[in-house]
């Protein structure tokens, strides 16, 4: 695509490493433009970082990137201060939000941001790529809400790719909203549900002892992937019910 008008480009970066004293240090915590990173409470062993989006965005034409690099033996928890709202920009054209997560052997990342809301008229592509070492641990939550209350959604395409020790364990893309391929709101894909989410849990011990597949309700299941990972897929009428389903699943998976 050759949209002539450039949107905002911003990259926020964080690096967590073992501080050698049983804790985790954050040698890099780099905000950029509308993407601000703040260290908040959290323990020394597991520092907590909040992604504070300045106002709203991404808007059409914007390209945001957030990277987290959790090095050997380190632990990090990342959340966000509020939901991210994709909005239409003054320029037409897709906005892009890339998340790149790397977690080394013996390290753990908990990535638990608030929802992504696709507002009417917006057009956003979200690409999340996660590279884990063979003994890395991960908890990741992704929630998409189609439209603000009573609003038609925008177009949202979201791809989630998980690699463990170089092998792709999960590759899933969901496209919805006006302009998405047909049938996205039909009985095979979303059937009128306006909130959809995933919870990905990776534990080296799942390789030996996979989480059994289990139905968590009419709109949610937990399944073992073809690798040391479990995935919860959930659909719900709204964001609140989705969060409730994912919270219950998380509590069961990570006691």
């Amino acid at each position: 695509m050759t949209a002539a008008v450039a949107g905002v480009r911003a990259t926020a970066r964080m690096v967590a490493r073992d501080d050698g004293r049983g804790g985790t240090a954050l040698p890099v915590l780099e905000s950029d433009g509308p993407l601000a990173l703040r260290r908040t409470r959290g323990s020394g062993a597991e520092p907590r970082v909040m992604l504070v989006g300045a106002m709203s965005g991404p808007l059409g034409g914007d390209h945001f990137t957030v990277t987290a690099d959790v090095r050997e033996g380190a632990r990090l928890c990342v959340g966000s201060a509020a939901a991210t709202i994709a909005l239409p920009g003054q320029t037409k054209g897709e906005a892009r939000y890339d998340v790149r997560l790397t977690v080394a052997d013996g390290a753990e990342l908990r990535w638990l941001p608030e929802q992504l809301i696709s507002a009417g008229g917006s057009d956003l592509y979200v690409g999340t790529r996660i590279d884990l070492g063979a003994t890395a641990r991960l908890v990741l939550r992704e929630e998409q809400v189609l439209g603000r209350v009573g609003e038609e959604p925008g177009r949202l395409t979201s791809r989630l790719v998980l690699r463990v020790a170089g092998r792709t364990v999960l590759d899933q893309e969901l496209a919805c909203g006006p302009g998405a391929p047909g049938g996205w709101d039909g009985p095979a894909v979303l059937a009128g549900h306006r909130a959809v989410g995933q919870l990905l849990v990776v534990r080296p011990e799942f390789a030996e002892e996979p989480v059994p597949a289990r139905v968590l309700g009419e709109g949610a299941v937990v399944v073992p992937l073809a690798g040391p990972a479990a995935l919860v897929t959930a659909v719900a009428p709204d964001a609140l019910l989705l969060r409730r389903a994912l919270d219950a699943a998380l509590a069961a998976l990570v006691p």
Partner: peptide
């Protein structure tokens, strides 16, 4: 890698 949540569920 297009996916359909309700087919999976």
């Amino acid at each position: 890698s297009a996916s359909a949540p309700l087919l999976e569920i």
